[in-house]
Amino acid sequence: MSFLIPCPNCGSRDVNEFAYGGEIAVRPEARPNVRELGSYLYFRRNVAGVQREWWFHRLGCEAWFQAERDTRTNEVLLTERPRASRDEAPPGPEAPALPDTPAV
């Protein structure tokens, strides 16, 4: 892997400078049941296509930001500093079909 990620603070850098923070999942607002908790903790959409995700610029500005990346080509379409509040968080994933996996 050697694709470039345009860090909103530092500009275009080698992916190896960054830590991947996973695709953006929305945290439940109220106490989830075990099944919902399991879905939030362990189930990801894992799309073949554009996905929004967290990145941390470990060997750079040491800041978190969000990126939209095409998982098929590793093309990073946009990056931006995190949106400040929860209300603006992007819409959550469609609930995937869950097997009965214990969350805890």
């Binding site: 500009g11 080698d14 400078e17 060997l59 040491e62």
Partner: peptide
Amino acid sequence: TDLDLDGLPAVGAVARVT
């Protein structure tokens, strides 16, 4: 380092250290 030396100052990996 692989930093762009014409784009300094910058923070990046030098000998794998930030």
